[in-house]
């Protein structure tokens, strides 16, 4: 991959951005996420996480299996606030659009 390859499409970070942050001393996915918003967008890290973990693995020498992907938080996919409120007030099916 090129250094200017987009790694996080939601928060617009390139491979070089990720490498620069790792070089600054951030050694976990959670830290990178909080300082750069990588993995905080609509996909919640589904796209970027594996690439970031691979970079962290190369930088730290630890296998990916020993690196934490962080906590997966609800919801599984984005959902309108109004839909949850309507469901709370009226019940019925939730519209996932």
């Amino acid at each position: 991959m090129e250094d200017n390859t987009i790694v996080c499409r939601c928060s617009d970070l390139t491979l070089q951005d990720v490498r620069d942050l790792i070089n600054k001393g951030y050694t976990s996915f959670d830290e990178l996420k909080r300082i750069s918003r990588i993995g905080m967008g609509p996909c919640q890290g589904r796209t970027c996480m594996q690439i970031v973990l691979r970079e962290l693995s190369i930088a730290t020498g630890k296998p990916i299996s020993e690196l934490s992907p962080g906590i997966f938080r609800p919801p599984v996919k984005p959902i309108k606030l109004g839909e949850i409120a309507r469901h709370a007030l009226e019940g019925g099916e939730v519209n996932h659009d």
């Binding site: 905080m40 967008g41 609509p42 919640q44 906590i71 938080r73 609800p74 919801p75 984005p78 959902i79 309108k80 606030l81 109004g82 949850i84 409120a85 469901h87 709370a88 007030l89």
Partner: peptide, 30 residues
């Protein structure tokens, strides 16, 4: 950990006070 009750109470209140937020999707709770 995250709870469902918070989400229901939060969305009911905020969509009443700030109605345009009805159409905004929430990504994550913690």
């Amino acid at each position: 950990t995250s709870g469902w009750h918070f989400l229901e109470e939060m969305t009911k209140t905020i969509t009443r006070v700030l109605p345009p937020l009805k159409d905004v999707r929430f990504l994550r709770q913690w």
